[in-house]
Amino acid sequence: MIPSLLAPLFVPGNRPDRFPKAAASGADAVIYDLEDAVGHNEKGIARKAIAGRPETSVYEIVRVNAASSGFMDQDLQAICANPPSAVMVAKTEGADDLEKVTAMLGSQITLIPLIETARGLVSLTDVLANDAVLCLAFGSIDFALDIGSSHERLALLAARSELVLRSRLANRQSPIDGVTVAIDDAVAIKDDALHAKSLGFGGKLAVHPRQIAPIFSAFSVSDEEIAWARRVLHSSQDGNSDKLYGQMIDRPVMERAKSVLAKASLSKRSLR
């Protein structure tokens, strides 16, 4: 079963000692990394470690190196015998990058294209046309580097909005936002996650177990949202659906209220 992917956690592929800790961290998925977290001289070690990883109940993702890196084929060969639940394709820049993965692992493999460059952003139509794509992920730090911008919200707003829009048009799951570099600042992490949620993202990548709780907190349905949704639906049942506390209540608002309660139910919150 595919999880919500609210806070998938990266773990370096060359640190098998951290694999059990990552699986037990509470993250809804673990991303075994063969790319940025692993130096060139350690990639062979990382491939062997990931290929021989212990069995776990957590949703498994392997991030492979970009097609242009020269490492992708070796990465895919290493995981053929023990494929993960999904493959995250670093620096996806077109349909060909994804076809290399499905050609080696089969069309049944689930793909998560990581958009980290301007070329990747303008190729979203072709990327999302691949039926194996579950959702997009945003490599915001590398993207900012590629376009020469600061890693700030305003500079990356257009790119983030494009990922959300294109995902919706292609009927894919909401995209996953990039990482927050702060590890110990729970306030900053949650604030970044709330910003991503407000734009329509469905989750946020984590690089440390301490980031998981703030991300989950941001993306969970709050008590205030549940109370608001109940009031909206109650007003419509009473036939008083024109206004609620001075705000117009129409069909889109009621549909949003239903969506809030549905999400709360899926997250096993009490709706008493």
Rank of each mutant, 00 (worst) to 15 (best):
A159C: 15
L271P: 04
A206H: 08
E93I: 05
D242F: 00
R172F: 06
K258G: 04
C135I: 03
K91W: 09
Q108D: 15
E93Q: 11
D192A: 13
L165Y: 07
S85D: 05
V187A: 14
P252Y: 08
L145F: 12
I109K: 07
D17V: 03
S140M: 07
V207A: 06
G178P: 00
M88R: 12
D17S: 10
V187Y: 10
V221E: 05
L199W: 04
D242H: 01
R53W: 04
Q74C: 09
G139T: 05
V101A: 02
A193K: 12
T180G: 02
S85A: 05
N171Y: 11
A227E: 08
L244V: 00
Q237N: 11
A118F: 10
N171R: 15
G178C: 00
M72S: 05
S85N: 11
P8Y: 02
F10S: 01
E255A: 13
S149A: 15
Q77G: 14
A103H: 11
T92C: 15
V58Q: 06
A155R: 14
N65V: 07
G70K: 08
A27K: 00
S174K: 14
G200R: 07
L266S: 07
Q108R: 15
G200E: 06
Q77N: 15
A7R: 11
A46H: 03
A193H: 06
A90H: 05
F201V: 00
P12D: 06
Q247V: 12
G26K: 09
K91T: 01
A193I: 09
A170V: 10
L194P: 04
G148V: 15
E225L: 08
M248P: 03
T180N: 15
A67E: 01
G239S: 03
F138C: 01
A137N: 03
A158N: 13
P12I: 09
P83Q: 13
L194G: 04
E93F: 02
V221G: 07
V64N: 00
